[in-house]
Design a protein around this nucleic acid. Structure first.
Length: 468
RNA sequence: CGGGCUAUAGCGCAGUCUGGUAGCGCGUUCGUCUGGGGGACGAGAGGUCGUAGGUUCGAAUCCUGCUAGCCCGACCA
């Protein structure tokens, strides 16, 4: 029952990955916050992740995830799982270490270059730490699927990847080891594969929206494949690595609560059209003449963080690796494929870049590690302690996933910590209010406080989270 | 991979130019006072100065090699 405020979203296929999601007393929580900015961290999300005790750098571009960082990572992972499964995609888990032989089949073992971390095992076999998984998933597919009747099919995983970047930077935004959802569709022909492409676009829009992010699909560089068959999802932020050009009209679009039938080709195509009609491109594909057709007051140039990408690449891997099915005419044909990625660990950085102030992080309610922070202003005072304990227990029972600051700290320190770690809501309990039977409910975003009874505060929070 | 920079206490820094046995702030421990936005006072713990070698009576400081990390650029979820 206590799976957190978002359990109502779960469907039959929901995978429980939320063992790290548990309410917590601050006195027992491993939350090593820092008052000062570490020098190595240059951008705000990296600084705040270190200051909020979410991560610890292990080596360049490689991080350990401490309890709160880990909890958010799991939360994002859950959202991605839920939305993928809602779209009818199958979760799998492939190993991080792959055999070089598969990559020799596709020809990418030699093409990939220095970014691929190559390892030799004790038998002298060439292995690699996977930077992506087209070969591995194609091998799984070809081993088991023979008939067009088993199509369409989409397999995805959320797994660690490694790319030996020349220059890791910006904390988890551009690490060498990163946590990523990668999905692969297998279809009988191009039309069906393009529906898979549209279906992914819709599921991604929904995923980002749940995370409180405005991620804009932008036509991206399709490389050697050509055509319109790849889009990147960009979150606008000054610290973004890509320059982006867009029609501000696209910012008004939301998917909202509309019912989506992921098997409905027309509906997915319509949504795809809705989001890709307003001009939105990265510098890779930017077309100045086309951009100038947008009314001047709606033309905007800024920077963005890439948090996902979808591709259609046809039969590139299926032909190279012999992934064929028998079609209705009894003929063996290579399957049409696409791949789709969401940078889960990078998303945490992107969310912070998009949502913070000078006091710290401001978590959107959809991803916050805890639903509410309870601050006891006078630890050790019988009345305050009793009220806080009761509030904490009620909040747990309501699935609000609270964090209770029961440390023997001064009020200022407790407030500063709650602000730094980004609790979207705070309930402040002190002797002054308790005399009148009230506590204070404060919004992190607006800073506005309201006095009310503890019951009313919990009721209000329950309503807020029910709408997420 | 080209260019720049850094390495001294858990974190942020000073000391290096001009060699003489290591200091400040935050944090941390103990005590007292305090108690609605990182409080005050007092007492303490904590560093063989990234690493290996060299010069010297003596090296955090001068010289050489190595390692690690950060920033700008080119490349990428």
């Amino acid at each position: 029952m206590l799976t957190g405020p978002f359990s109502h979203r779960t469907n039959g296929n929901y995978i429980h990955l939320d063992r790290s999601c548990a309410p917590m007393r601050m006195s027992r929580y491993f939350l090593p916050t820092l008052k000062e900015n570490p020098t190595d961290a240059q951008i705000v999300s990296h600084r705040l992740m270190l200051r909020a005790g979410m991560i610890k750098q292990a080596s360049s571009g490689i991080y350990s995830w401490l309890p709160m960082g880990f909890k958010i990572l799991r939360k994002l992972e859950n959202i991605v799982h839920e939305e993928q499964q809602r779209a009818g995609h199958n979760p799998i888990l492939m190993p991080t270490l792959q055999s070089a032989d598969l990559w020799r089949e596709s020809g990418r073992y030699d093409d990939y270059g220095e970014e691929m971390l190559r390892i030799t095992d004790r038998h002298g076999h060439d292995m690699l730490y996977g930077p992506t998984n087209e070969e591995q998933v194609t091998d799984i597919f070809r081993s088991h699927v023979r008939s067009y009747k088993d199509l369409p099919q989409t397999l995805y995983q959320i797994q660690w990847k490694f790319r030996d970047e020349r220059r890791p930077r910006f904390g988890v935004m551009r690490g060498r080891e990163f946590f990523m959802k990668d999905g692969y569709n297998f279809d009988i022909d191009k039309d069906s594969a393009l529906h898979a492409y549209n279906r992914h676009l819709v599921s991604y829009l929904r995923t980002y929206e749940r995370m409180g992010l405005k991620a804009i699909p932008m036509r991206a560089d399709s490389g050697p494949i050509g055509g319109d068959d790849t889009h990147e999802f960009l979150v606008l932020a000054d610290t973004g690595e890509s320059e982006v050009f867009y029609d501000t009209k696209i910012l008004d679009l939301t998917l909202g609560d509309r019912e989506v039938d992921y098997d409905n080709w027309d509906q997915c195509a319509d949504i795809m059209k809705e989001w890709t009609t307003p001009y939105a491109r990265t510098d890779e594909t930017h077309d100045e003449a086309l951009f100038n057709e947008v009314p001047e007051e709606r033309r905007k140039v800024s920077r963005g963080i890439e948090v996902g990408q979808i591709f259609y690449f046809g039969t590139k891997y299926s032909e190279a690796m012999g992934a064929t099915v028998t079609n209705a005419e009894g003929k063996d044909v290579p399957v049409h494929m696409g791949s789709h990625g969401i940078g889960v660990s990078r998303l945490i950085g992107a969310i912070i870049e998009a949502s913070h102030d000078d006091k710290g992080i401001i978590w959107p309610e959809g991803v916050t590690p805890f639903g509410v922070g309870i601050v006891n202003l006078k630890q050790g005072d019988d009345e305050a302690d009793t009220a806080c304990e009761a509030l904490y227990k009620s909040a747990i029972a309501l699935g609000l996933d609270p964090i209770y600051d029961d440390r023997n700290e001064r009020a200022g320190g407790k407030f500063a910590t709650m602000d730094l770690i980004g609790m979207p809501w705070r309930i402040t309990v002190g002797p002054r209010g308790l005399k009148n039977g009230v506590v204070e409910l404060t919004s992190r975003k607006t800073g506005e406080s309201e006095e009310m009874t503890p019951e009313m505060a919990l009721e209000k929070l329950t309503k807020i989270y029910a709408g997420i």
